[in-house]
Design a protein around this nucleic acid. Sequence first.
DNA 1: ATAAATAAAGACCTATTTATCTTAAATAGA
DNA 2: TCTATTTAAGATAAATAGGTCTTTATTTAT
Lengths: 144, 144
Amino acid sequence: MFSKACEYAIKATLHIAEQSLQNKRIILPEIAKAIDSPVAFTAKILQQLAKNKIVQSSKGPNGGFSISEQAIQTFKLKDIVLAIDGESIFTECGLGLKKCDENSPCPIHHKFKSIRAEIIDMLENTSLKELSKQLESGVTFLKI
Amino acid sequence: MFSKACEYAIKATLHIAEQSLQNKRIILPEIAKAIDSPVAFTAKILQQLAKNKIVQSSKGPNGGFSISEQAIQTFKLKDIVLAIDGESIFTECGLGLKKCDENSPCPIHHKFKSIRAEIIDMLENTSLKELSKQLESGVTFLKI
DNA sequence: ATAAATAAAGACCTATTTATCTTAAATAGA
DNA sequence: TCTATTTAAGATAAATAGGTCTTTATTTAT
């Protein structure tokens, strides 16, 4: 479904959001610990997220990562997936055909349509706020 | 969604089925041409499918691949996916957690549930017959 | 028997993804 | 200004997925 990088991106973003909701910055090694991810790889992914303005980073003592309340409310899962995996999940044919559409569909094109629509709907309508709130309240988890 | 190998597997199986419905065996290079896949890699995949009794192979002149009418009717997409990609698509957590279930869900577990159910339903209920018939009648396509 | 046509098997290669390491840059505080 | 702490950037390495090549086994027809 998602690349490993994208899985880490989602988990990292949600953990940062959870902390930011409590007005805490969080540094890289703590993020990696919280989401059980390799530190250096996570750093790369956070760079990507920062470039895409999904998280804010600041260097130096008392630095670390954070997300604005505004961003937590407006960004959706879709934004993270687009930033890390690109648009392939939204557009690519289920059987890998270069050209597959209503006029010239692959054998599973129509079967796939409603599934893809549901995936897109989910990604577009699930906000960081919703997910990080659930984490904060302990009903969902980021590791094990 | 599927590995490249699985995409080729589905396409190859459907093309063989289409031919078998017309009582034609088909040889490897023709399969590869029909589905626009690398010949040697396709050979590997067909070996897997043959081991899993999804296709029949026979060596020597007039050999090639075929699928019984019986198999075309009973096998579903699910059988191909299981044979090539294993059960990961049916079971793995959307965020890659080792343990993710109703009791200890990842942040997207519930969001993912209906999507996964729909995918499984599609794979379990889509027969080779249905898809190969559509190919035969020219309403779906295997390449470009 | 022999030759030709086919798939099977396994070793090998390549590209991509995942992950690490090293150095540089920025910032805060003493 | 100096040092410690943090992220940024880029080179490198390891693992996995994707793909090829060579040899062997099997079958059919002559």
